[in-house]
Amino acid sequence: MTEVNPSAVRSAVRSATLPIGLPAMLPTPMRIKRRMRDTPDTFTIVLDVPQPPFVLEAGQFNMLYAFGVGEVPISISGVSKNGGELVHTIRDVGTVTHALSLLRKDGVVGVRGPYGRGWPLEAARGKDVILAAGGIGLAPLRPAIRHVLDHREEYGRVVILYGARTPQDMLYLPEIQKWRGRLDTKMSVTVDRASRKWLGNVGVITQLVAASRVDPDETIAMVCGPEIMMHYMQIHLAKLGLPNDQIYVSMERNMKCAIGRCGHCQYGGDFICKDGPVFTFDEIADRFRVRAL
């Protein structure tokens, strides 16, 4: 059995001395410890890391392998403090994600990663932070939110914004309630539509931006959601005074290899898998003006 310690892969990449012959394409089998249903089409699995710790940057992704079906890139939505548990939130929308949705506790998932460039948690230190997620975009952003809240004293004002389709489509409700309860953080949630039972905001996430009391010169915004949502967020963050190089977004394209070789995730001159998935809006602003890129 060939085992790859993903954290070894990561450190090898960082030091740019990855030896030829390293089996970068080999998944490590990991057992499902727990499985939760988040929304009607979205579920979360907690994987048992065989050789902890699993070291990652918030915002990176793994390739998850459903045996015999194939691989799919899924952002990492959490890791336990000791690096022994890996959390992925997955939406059942394709062949591979559907196969993964059928797995239960003790089922096995192949994992290789982590890959890509994550959120700018270092660059944001000492600054105000806006963390804005739309829909399932909360999953890739959650490690960044957790990091900021766990190191709260290292950041200025912290504003968390979350937009979902309906109250029933919101992820991680218990955790969101904890975030909302904090006195050192401003957390606002809005939904596109709701019944009368919902007492929170109804509207779009961009409408929450104006009330963020941040210092625009000293603020980093991290935005994750559908492309159109990120695009509109940039417009509203710009109104607040944030320049594009302080706005970070996470992009998505087809991915087969995650190591810059299969060519599918090209986005202009970048490969989402190795140059992203997180980019400053500055880096890609022009591409938002091109259709079907």
Partner: peptide, 16 residues
């Protein structure tokens, strides 16, 4: 304008 734009975005159902 702000409400109209927001309504259009809501109509897109962008999280679906």
């Amino acid at each position: 304008i702000e409400r109209l734009m927001a309504t259009r975005v809501q109509m897109l159902d962008m999280y679906s």
